[in-house]
Structure formats: structure tokens, C-alpha cells
Design a protein around this nucleic acid. Structure first.
Length: 427
RNA sequence: GGAGGAAUACCCAAGUCUGGCUGAAGGGGUCGGUCUUGAAAACCGAGAGGCGGGUCAAACCGCGCGGGGGUUCGAAUCCCUCUUCCUCCGCCA
């Protein structure tokens, strides 16, 4: 959520920056009217409440002296009714204002390129050499199925489309990647490991910004208002909801492994085969809580941590700076890391690293104190995938495939694979 | 799933039956000081958070005793509801 006071003071500037996102801002225009009506009502109601408080004291005094207070009580009854009316209208106005503000996206940072679509994202670097195959390379779902380590058909039987069984060396590879990533981030990059709940409540999804606008993207479980998490970002960011952190302990950095669940509403027909777009996948998510002045440095570091995973795995990738049209609802600035998928001849998103500034912190009420007794300030939150594991498996299978159908295992993963150097057909 | 109990400020905790003089006793911790070679202890002193309105900034005002709603001139205190936690019984990975 945006800072109401800031919006009040800089309305035209905010609106102009938001318009670069290509958002419909019709509702946003009601801000000024609602905001000033709100303050008007507060002033009126509070004046009457002050009057009531004073009168109540007098009535108490009179009662104690056994005097008759009927006159004062009668008068206050009317004041009370008037307060009730004003508070009623105030609630309505605040609900309306809240409705609007919860649906306004974050303001893009000045360093974000202005654009109309994903075509306007800016590539800022590439790493690694794209492999050349002396044979016809197979897509990862074929490799995986032929090796007997991925089973999409049986997953369709037990569950439905966009699900998969990993088996044998495939399941082990998944586990190896998760362990490798977590070890790297905790041992080398200084993160605290976390294993979060995979279900969250509505308040948490609102805190990180998935709700109220994007409810159709999430899976609702039962009637308990529990949602399957679309990313560990949600539980881990909300870990500190409604807290005031000690400034001396910042930044707080967490590496969380979790399953992620996405309804993929609106993606029907896209990436229907393989591991790229599943309803369920695993991911190691990196989450930071930092002081405002440190968040942009942290965004660069965070992106570097995700890149390091790909470098150690030897997978070619590129980094894109997302333009205003492709930022997502909550980010002020975002880098996507895309890994090379040989058979598609393109780079595909495998990580997304964002600085939300205080947008999530405001929604989730996460603050810090610079020192004892100081006023609480909102933290800045950031997160990035480090990495999405399903897509990493896809990239590994394709980039490391051999002419005989086997797949080489990158050296850094071999200790996690029982020393195995390659995956060969099980039969 | 059944039966009880609890939620007060950074922490512990009184007040709730008997509504008003309770922004809320007391203790701990915190901060400053005395003492000490230094520390601890002891003693003296300080401050009670947060949100909103208001202001150049203050003053000032309102809210606030888990959340929401109600009764009342007035609610930490009475009523309803929700959430969370605890104890016992049952079931269970």
C-alpha cells in the first residue's frame, strides 16, 4: 500500500508514475475526495467525543455528590447519537478508501525503464556459453520420461494436468538441488534457513499483495480461509507481520524451501508440456527485511545470490531489468533471471528478484526502530527465487543431455547424488 | 470432536463480581546517576508504547486493556461474536 500522506501531498506525481504501468486508475481519482471527507468526519466526531468525555466527568462528579444529573445525561444522549452517525459515515468512507488503496500498485523506481509490454524489458547481462549439440536435442520432458525419472502421465491419473511424479534419480535430483541451494545460501551468503507452513490465511496473502486483487491465482483450501502458498515469500514475509524489529538486527535474511501452488488461471494452453508451468513446484525463496537506505544495494546482492546458483550449476542465463509494464503489482523494481532452454531456443524465467520498498511492510505493518526510543519506521522488503527447482531440473536435463540419452550431473551436485556422475536409463 | 480456563503496556502482573476520581497499582527489565579499581549488588532519579486528527514544529484532541459489534450519559469492567493460547478427555501422523 502507498503512504496516504505522501499520496495526498504528491497526487499528480504519483498518478503520473502509476500511469506508466498501464494501470486503470479510474478509482484512484476518488482519493482526494475520500481522503478529505475522512479527515472532516474525524475532526467533527472527535470534537464531540472530547465534549462527551468532559461531560461524563462532570456527571460522575455530580453523582458522587448526590446531585441530579438528568439534564446533562439527556444532553449527552443526543451528542452520543450524533457521534454514532458520524462514526458510521466515517467507517463507510474508510472502507471505500481502503478498497481503493489496497488495489493501487506500487510506484516504479526512477531507474525502471518505461515500457508497454515485456518486449521493453532491458537485458543487462548474460553469463555462460549456450551449448551446441552434435545431435538432435530432446525437450526435457522427453529426456525425463525416457530416463524414467519424470512421470507426467501417472500424475495426470492421480491428480490432473500440470502435475508430475519425480522418481528414482529424478526425485533424488530434486532433493539434491534443494539441499545444494539451501547450503549455498546459508553457508556462503549468510541466510537463515526456514521451512514455513505451506498454508496461509487471508491476512497474510493481503500483506504481501496477492490479495485482494489476485484471488483467482491462489488455491483456497476448504472453507477455513486457508490458501496454499504460491511462494514462500508469503509466510516468510508475514513471519514479521505486526512487529517492530530491532534496527541493530537488520538486515534479516531468510532462505526458505517450500512447495508452491499456482492455479495458473489465465495460462490455459501455455507451456502445457513439461516442468515449466506446473500447479505445484518446489522453490528456495530468499527474503530480506532491510533499512530503507539499504534496499537497493540489497537488491543487487540478492540477484547475485540467485545468479551464483546458476553459475555453479553451469547453466547459461541472462538478467533482465523489468520495465514499468512488467513489474507486477507490488514491486518498485525487479530483475528477472532467465535460464537457457536449448530446445526452445530461448531464455526462460527461473528467478525473479524484487524490491518492494515499504509497499508490503505498510500492508503487513512491519517496522523497525533505529535505536531504543526512536520512532518506528517501515522496513523495506525484498525477495527473489534462489531458485525455482522444477525449472532448474528442466534446464539441467536439457543443457546436460548427452547423445546416448543420459544426462551429466554438474559437479557441485554430485556429492548430493551419492557421487553419481550421470543419470542413465534405469532399465 | 467433548469439557473447562485464559488474553491488560517491552516482560510478569493487579484491577473485571460491585461501570465513573484507572492511561491503567506493583514488580522486572531499560536509560541516567551515586557507590566501586572495574563489575555486581544496593540506593536515587527518569521515562510507558502505538495509531489517528491537528501543527512549519509544538501545544492540544481522539482512539486504546486480543479483534469486531452492542448496552450506557459514561465500559479494561456488562452483553454478543470471532481469533489465539492453556488444561483434561477422545481420536490421530
Amino acid at each position: 500500500m502507498l503512504d496516504i500522506k505522501y499520496v495526498r501531498a504528491h497526487f499528480d506525481e504519483v498518478k503520473e508514475k502509476l500511469s506508466k504501468r498501464g494501470e486503470d486508475l479510474a478509482d484512484f481519482d476518488r482519493f482526494g475526495e475520500l481522503d478529505s471527507r475522512r479527515r472532516e468526519l474525524i475532526a467533527q466526531a472527535e470534537e464531540l467525543k472530547a465534549e462527551r468525555n468532559a461531560a461524563s466527568q462532570q456527571i460522575a462528579e455530580m453523582k458522587r455528590n448526590k446531585e441530579n444529573a438528568d439534564e446533562a445525561i439527556k444532553k449527552m444522549r443526543e451528542v452520543g447519537d450524533r457521534i454514532k452517525e458520524l462514526d458510521g459515515e466515517l467507517h463507510q468512507v474508510e472502507d471505500d478508501l481502503q478498497y481503493i488503496m489496497m488495489r493501487v500498485p506500487n510506484i516504479p523506481h526512477d531507474s525502471v525503464p518505461v515500457g508497454d509490454s515485456e518486449d521493453d524489458n532491458v537485458e543487462i547481462r548474460r553469463w555462460g556459453d549456450v551449448p551446441e549439440f552434435g545431435f538432435e536435442a530432446k525437450p526435457h520432458w522427453e529426456i525425463g520420461t525416457d530416463l524414467g525419472i519424470l512421470d507426467f502421465e501417472r500424475a495426470a491419473k492421480t491428480t490432473g494436468s500440470r502435475f508430475v511424479f519425480y522418481r528414482g534419480a529424478g526425485a533424488r535430483l530434486e532433493r539434491a538441488l534443494a539441499a545444494f541451494m539451501l547450503d549455498l545460501h546459508t553457508d556462503e551468503h549468510g541466510y537463515e534457513e526456514m521451512l514455513p507452513p505451506f498454508l496461509v490465511n487471508r491476512t497474510s496473502l493481503t500483506g504481501t499483495g496477492q490479495l485482494p486483487k489476485f484471488e483467482e491465482d491462489a488455491f483456497l483450501v476448504g472453507e477455513e480461509d486457508y490458501f496454499l502458498i504460491p511462494t514462500a515469500e508469503v509466510p516468510v514475509t508475514n513471519f514479521h507481520r505486526d512487529e517492530i524489529l530491532d534496527g541493530g538486527h537488520l538486515p534479516e535474511s531468510y532462505a526458505a524451501y517450500s512447495a508452491c501452488f499456482r492455479s495458473e488461471a489465465g495460462s490455459a494452453g501455455r507451456d502445457t508440456r513439461g516442468l515449466i508451468r506446473q500447479h505445484q513446484f518446489n522453490k528456495v525463496e530468499l527474503v530480506h527485511f532491510v533499512k530503507p537506505e539499504e534496499s537497493y544495494d540489497m537488491l543487487e546482492k540478492l540477484t547475485g545470490h540467485a545468479e551464483k546458483v546458476l553459475q555453479l550449476l553451469g547453466l547459461p542465463y541472462r538478467v533482465l531489468k523489468m520495465c514499468t509494464a512488467d513489474l507486477g503489482f507490488t514491486a518498485a523494481k525487479k530483475y528477472d533471471i532467465e535460464v537457457w532452454i536449448p530446445t526452445q531456443g530461448v531464455y526462460r524465467e527461473i528467478s525473479s528478484c524484487s524490491n518492494f520498498e515499504d509497499f508490503q511492510a505498510r500492508r503487513a505493518n512491519i517496522r523497525f526502530r533505529r535505536e531504543q526510543g526512536a520512532k518506528p519506521e517501515y522496513v523495506h522488503t525484498l525477495n527473489g527465487s534462489g531458485l525455482a527447482i522444477g525449472r532448474t531440473v528442466a534446464a539441467l536435463l536439457e543443457n546436460y543431455q548427452q547423445e546416448d540419452g543420459s544426462v551429466l550431473i554438474p559437479e557441485v551436485l554430485r556429492p548430493y547424488m551419492g557421487g553419481k556422475e550421470r543419470i542413465v536409463p534405469s532399465k
